[in-house]
Amino acid sequence: MLRRTLLASAAALAGLSGMAIAEGHEPTKVGFVFVGPVGDGGWTYEHNQARLAVEEHFGDKVETVFVESVPEGPDAERVMTQMALEGADLIFTTSFGYMDPTINVAQQFPDVMFEHATGYKQADNVSVYSARFYEGRAVQGHIAGQLTESNIIGYIASFPIPEVIRGINSAYLHAKEVNPDVEFKIIWAYTWFDPAKEAEAASVLIEQGADVILQHTDSTAPQAAAASVNEAGEKTIYTFGQASDMGEFAPLPRVSSIIDDWAPYYIARTQAVMDGTWESVNTWDGIGAGMVGIGDISDAVPADIKASAEDLIERLATGEYHAFTGPINKQDGSAWLAEGETADDGTLAGMDFYVEGLTSEIPQ
């Protein structure tokens, strides 16, 4: 009899709890796992801006929590587990290296929804999302190829994953299209955020003759390194912002930026959890959908180059033009895309090769 009474009481409490949630008394708890500090000025900064946009949009209907500077690996799994144990309804894990930890933790918490950025492994409660950053790299390459006087463009790469390799290929193809003499020098930093390493990489590339620096790392250190050279009056080094506008370095040396706008996606996915309509999806949007933005092209860029870049942005946005349109060969000279043929998403998602003309090797 006592057992039946306890069960009835528990059921009543559960019903009251459900009523409270339905009436909006219990906020939806949304967690964010960040690979860098929220003040990095780049990748994590923009993800955190999107978190703040979720708070502003939903008000007291949501509670957000975050942990910054979480290494990719066991620490990430521990942080995700703790968030789930503390009642998170939805967790955004915002770096490629969080992929397996996200899948592992999701298996343990089937009632928690997970959103993993830039990965490809899905589950019933795991969605993946990314942006077509390679479209922004195409624009950067188009401008860089016309700005360089040394014909050497430096590229600071993070890790040899498909996202980064796609970006290098796209930037190179579009620089080469406007400047057949252009050469890319690539330094792998093996970090997403390490200002000291990034600054050192920029300095080495400048010493090797690069007068334009592109980056797929997250700090403003390369811009600062270029600025110091410019201020010394030795020569002019141009840089591009990564993930965020980095506009404090305008008009020189920053030329323009790739800007990640995650806010609309984060708001929509949070709303789906609230509505009970969330389902596992694979989202990969670009300039046209607004997930990839191009920052203001500064006055450091001549008007004719700016106009041609803006035309390229428009054609990418409307879908009139695809950043990987043949004829394109692979680095070894073998045919990849025929005249007018465009790359399929499957090949782009797993890209593990350089295009013809790049002379360095992809680290293994």
Results as ranks from 00 to 15, higher is better:
residue 154 G to S: 04
residue 44 T to N: 05
residue 112 V to N: 01
residue 278 W to S: 02
residue 233 G to W: 02
residue 219 S to Y: 12
residue 273 V to T: 05
residue 275 D to V: 04
residue 323 A to D: 08
residue 125 N to S: 05
residue 21 I to C: 14
residue 262 W to C: 08
residue 16 L to S: 04
residue 263 A to K: 00
residue 249 F to P: 15
residue 345 D to I: 06
residue 347 T to C: 14
residue 136 G to V: 11
residue 256 S to F: 05
residue 170 S to N: 05
residue 73 G to I: 13
residue 261 D to V: 14
residue 199 A to C: 08
residue 78 R to Q: 15
residue 224 A to L: 14
residue 136 G to Y: 11
residue 78 R to P: 07
residue 225 A to S: 15
residue 154 G to F: 08
residue 68 E to C: 01
residue 239 T to D: 14
residue 187 I to E: 09
residue 244 S to Y: 07
residue 338 A to Y: 14
residue 328 I to V: 10
residue 237 I to T: 10
residue 141 G to D: 10
residue 233 G to N: 01
residue 142 H to T: 06
residue 211 D to A: 05
residue 125 N to H: 11
residue 95 S to T: 10
residue 6 L to K: 14
residue 169 N to A: 13
residue 284 W to C: 07
residue 361 E to A: 07
residue 314 E to H: 03
residue 247 G to C: 09
residue 160 P to Y: 03
residue 193 F to G: 05
residue 249 F to I: 15
residue 319 G to W: 01
residue 256 S to C: 03
residue 5 T to D: 15
residue 320 E to V: 13
residue 30 V to Y: 06
residue 357 G to P: 11
residue 257 S to W: 03
residue 15 G to C: 07
residue 3 R to F: 14
residue 66 F to W: 09
residue 44 T to G: 02
residue 210 A to Y: 04
residue 234 E to C: 06
residue 213 I to P: 08
residue 89 D to L: 06
residue 213 I to L: 13
residue 254 R to E: 15
residue 46 E to N: 11
residue 47 H to K: 04
residue 312 L to P: 13
residue 67 V to T: 12
residue 15 G to H: 01
residue 163 E to A: 13
residue 358 L to N: 10
residue 21 I to L: 14
residue 59 G to T: 03
residue 83 M to P: 00
residue 185 K to N: 04
residue 14 A to W: 13
residue 123 A to W: 01
residue 114 F to P: 08
residue 46 E to S: 11
residue 28 T to L: 06
residue 27 P to H: 01
residue 49 Q to C: 02
residue 115 E to H: 00
